[in-house]
């Protein structure tokens, strides 16, 4: 689905969402309130400037008492891999955006992420993954690490990795594998109105971070929840 199709399906009565420099911003009527919409379009990479602008919009929404949701629509590149961004402290800017989303959520503005295209690395962590509920649109293609890069670093042949990738969701790119991790909660139905599907998500928000539990249930990430629980138990004892 294209961004226009998604927006039309989310907001059949209209919206004021625009894209500027690859950044999505605006709002639209949703579930009885008015959702703030932010995001990244056209596989744009996320640098210090973009992260700060998006964080400002999220904090403005977080400051309000209306409890309206925040939608985060993502078709991004990775973080912008430039000297200037690192000189200025990109890690702080990306973390700031993620924290802004966490804060908004704790202040009663449910955050819903929707990946409809690509995303990778720091940009993915700072946006889509920082929402309370992350869903995918069919055809989305998150790529934490592409197999060519894995091949270069591990010095394993690409053919071997492609073979491994077929039944090893822990490292292979793609939406299905992020679903298996538990990080993408569900894949939406592109043929049904998105407005209703997002409203249902808002009615049934997870009360805590259960992504590791989902990953275990789905068999894609079998260790994380168990290990975290063991550490919690050990910390409680003695």
């Amino acid at each position: 689905m294209t961004l226009d199709e998604i927006l039309a399906s989310l907001f059949p009565d209209g919206h004021d969402v625009t894209v500027q420099d690859g950044l999505i911003a605006g709002s639209g009527p949703l579930a009885g309130g008015r959702a703030t919409v932010i995001g990244i379009a056209d596989e744009t990479t996320l640098g210090v400037d973009g992260a700060l602008r998006l964080a400002g919009l999220v904090l403005d929404a977080a400051a309000r008492d209306d409890g309206d949701p925040i939608l985060v629509l993502i078709d991004s590149g990775s973080q912008r891999m430039r000297r200037r961004d690192e000189l200025l402290g990109l890690n702080e800017y990306l973390a700031h955006l993620a924290k802004a989303l966490f804060l908004a959520d704790t202040r009663g503005h449910p955050t819903v992420g929707m990946i409809y295209g690509h995303s990778a690395a720091g940009a993915f962590i700072a946006t889509a993954l920082a929402t309370r509920v992350l869903v995918g649109v069919p055809g989305a293609n998150p790529t934490v690490m592409d197999l060519t890069s894995v091949a270069r670093v591990t010095t394993l042949p690409l053919e071997r990795l492609e073979e491994l990738a077929k039944d090893t969701p822990v490292f292979a790119p793609g939406l299905d594998n992020m679903v298996a991790m538990g990080s993408v909660r569900a894949v939406l139905d592109a043929d049904a109105p998105l407005a209703g599907q997002v409203a249902s998500l808002l009615d049934d928000l997870p009360r805590f971070d259960d992504r590791d539990r989902l990953g275990a249930e789905r068999g894609g990430r079998t260790e994380a929840a168990r290990i975290a629980d063991l550490v919690v138990e050990a910390a409680r004892g003695g």
Binding site: K99, F171, M178, A224
Partner: peptide
Amino acid sequence: GVRLQEANAGETAISEIMRAIVEVRR
């Protein structure tokens, strides 16, 4: 950063850790 042999698990876990830090700070 993320261990690329376990990239999807690692990437997701970075987010879980950040969220957990926020909870600790709260």
